[in-house]
C-alpha cells in the first residue's frame, strides 16, 4: 500500500453505497465497493453506508466480513459510518433486533430509529464549528442518535435539543445523518485526511 494513493472501501453489503463512492471519487479518492474479507484487507480506510443496520450485520456475519472488519478497526484503520454505519461502529446498540451485533470500536451507545417512523424523518441545518462556519445541512432518515459517549469520544454535532448526531474518536467517525445525499463533502474530506495520516504514519 505504501507508495501508491490510499485505497478507500465502501462496505457494499446493502445501502447507499453509490452515493458514498460518488462523493469519495469527487474528492479524488481511489474508492471501491468492498464486501469480501480479502477486499477488506486491501483497503486503507472504509466507509460504512446508510442502509438497514440489521441486514448489514447479518450479511457481514454470513460472509466472514465481521471478523475482518473488527480486526482492521482494532488495528486503527479509519472508518466513517453514516446512519446504519454509525450503528455498526457503536459499542452498544439500543432497540436492536433480536441477536443484532455491531462491529464496535466507537465508545458510544446508539439508539436505532430514535425519531420514529419515516413520517418523522426530516432535514435541518446544524452548526458544526469543527467543520467551518457554514452550517451542515443534514438529512435524517429513520435515523439513530447517540445517547451517551465514552471519555475518548468527541461530539462534533448536536440537534437544537441537545441530542448528539455526529461523533469522532481517533480514526473513527460517525454521523446519524447522510452528508452523501446532500452534496456535503466536508465529512468525507475529514475522513480522507485521517486515511492519508494513517497511511503516512504506517509508512514511517
Amino acid at each position: 500500500m505504501a507508495g501508491s494513493a490510499p485505497v478507500v472501501g465502501v462496505l457494499a453489503l446493502q445501502g447507499d453505497v453509490r452515493e458514498h463512492l460518488a462523493v469519495l471519487r469527487a474528492l479524488g479518492a481511489d474508492a471501491r465497493p468492498v464486501r469480501r474479507p480479502e477486499e477488506i484487507s486491501a483497503i486503507d480506510g472504509l466507509v460504512i453506508p446508510g442502509g438497514e443496520s440489521s441486514v448489514i450485520d447479518k450479511l457481514a456475519r454470513a460472509f466472514g466480513v465481521q471478523q475482518s472488519l473488527r480486526d482492521r478497526i482494532a488495528d486503527g484503520m479509519p472508518v466513517y459510518g453514516t446512519c446504519a454505519g454509525l450503528i455498526m461502529l457503536a459499542d452498544e446498540i439500543r432497540d436492536a433486533i433480536a441477536g443484532q451485533q455491531s462491529l464496535g470500536g466507537l465508545d458510544v451507545v446508539v439508539r436505532r430509529n430514535a425519531f420514529g417512523t419515516q413520517l418523522d424523518s426530516f432535514e435541518t441545518d446544524i452548526a458544526m464549528p469543527e467543520l467551518g462556519d457554514e452550517p451542515v445541512h443534514a438529512v435524517f432518515i429513520r435515523a439513530p442518535v447517540v445517547e451517551s459517549v465514552g471519555e475518548g469520544v468527541e461530539v462534533i454535532g448536536r440537534l437544537d435539543d441537545g441530542r448528539i448526531v455526529a461523533v469522532e474518536q481517533g480514526p473513527l467517525m460517525g454521523t446519524s445523518f447522510h452528508p452523501e445525499v446532500t452534496g456535503e463533502h466536508r465529512f468525507h474530506a475529514r475522513f480522507l485526511q485521517k486515511v492519508a495520516d494513517s497511511v503516512a504514519s504506517h509508512a514511517r
Partner: peptide
C-alpha cells in the same frame, strides 16, 4: 432518501 437506503435489499 429512504428508498436510497433500501438499495441492494
Amino acid at each position: 432518501g429512504l428508498a436510497e437506503m433500501l438499495k441492494g435489499g
